[in-house]
Design a protein around this nucleic acid. Structure first.
Length: 300
DNA sequence: TGCCAGGCCCTCTTTAGGGCCTT
């Protein structure tokens, strides 16, 4: 009986969200005792999603969504939605059993070669949001950059070198970790770009990637789930910008370039997990450990 | 705009070639 009620609850939930066209702010669903708990992937992101004018109905307004008319198309911010308040209230009471911390990552580098190029920028965001949910730092690559202005920016006093940035990164990730449960680092094309850079940098300065750290490539995920779901994207249209456009997401500008992409990927990840009905457990199953890169490195 | 590296995927072919995707 409990399962039947949960099924009906879920069906009604999806139906409600589909009707309102606001399915972005609550993604990870799980049955908790006899209740359906809504897990938002993000709470304080500045990302908004464009909605067609006809979708603004009294129902949405009555639900107290934050609507701003900034241009021809109204925008709906998700940060004041009820599921989020529910999540925050539950989190404060520490009653939600989250299987993992999901962190969206983007790196800036001096080039594309993880063996020879250096990291210049690290941006990470905890999709659950809350206080101190963002980590951002420039990194002094200790090499001369081609762009003179960028070179000055990255070599200013106070910009940490990678060996100084790693301990800060570790401390921040640890602060986001929930009782030693896994951390899933998500990056677009991370398997071929961000993750090899990160793992190599850790090894270079004598740090080990913790076994609880898992890696998930959102490019690979997008190519899989957007096909499985029937909402096919044409081959060659899985760039982050393409996904932002596909999901009709508006990303606010920021001086921190990598953080702009992180914000965008947070929203894209929400959409993908929603349309594909993926849970945290599903993401864990699709993720892999750093040993995948360590093996590659040792075989060189 | 294209180059850079490299893993994955698709297509066309059976072992190879080319495009995608990231800074």
């Amino acid at each position: 009986m409990k399962h039947i009620m949960s099924f009906i609850f879920l069906r009604n939930f999806y139906h409600l969200r589909n009707c309102l066209l606001i399915g972005a702010n609550s993604r990870l669903l799980r049955i908790h005792s006899n209740r359906c708990i809504v897990f938002p992937l993000r709470t304080y992101s500045n990302v908004t999603r464009r909605l067609p004018l006809r979708s603004i109905t009294p129902h949405i307004i009555n639900l107290q969504f934050n609507i701003s008319i900034a241009s021809k198309e109204p925008k709906i911010s998700y940060q004041y939605s009820d599921p989020i308040k529910l999540y925050q209230a539950q989190k404060e009471r520490d009653t939600i059993d989250q299987p993992a911390t999901i962190l969206v990552l983007d790196l800036g580098t001096t080039g594309l070669n993880s063996k020879t190029d250096k990291i210049t920028e690290i941006a990470i965001r905890d999709v659950q949001g809350g206080m101190d949910s963002k980590f951002y730092t420039l990194v002094n690559p200790e090499v001369t950059l081609k762009n003179h202005k960028r070179n000055e920016l990255h070599t200013e006093s106070g910009v940490p070198r990678m060996e100084e940035a790693i301990p800060r990164l570790l401390k921040w990730v640890e602060s986001r970790q929930i009782n030693g449960k896994p951390v899933i680092l998500v990056a677009h094309n991370g398997h071929c770009f961000d993750f090899p850079f990160l793992v190599r940098a850790f090894h270079e300065y004598g740090y080990q990637i913790h076994e609880n750290w898992l890696f998930l490539d959102s490019l690979h995920l997008a190519r899989q789930v957007l096909h499985d779901n029937g909402t096919k994207l044409k081959r060659g249209n899985h760039k982050l910008k393409d996904l932002v456009k596909f999901f009709n997401i508006v990303v606010e500008a920021s001086a921190q370039k990598a953080m702009v992409d992180v914000n965008a990927l947070c929203a894209v990840l929400q959409q993908m997990t929603f349309v594909s009905k993926l849970t945290s457990a599903d993401l864990i199953e699709r993720a892999y450990t750093a040993s995948r890169y360590s093996t590659r490195r040792s075989s060189e």
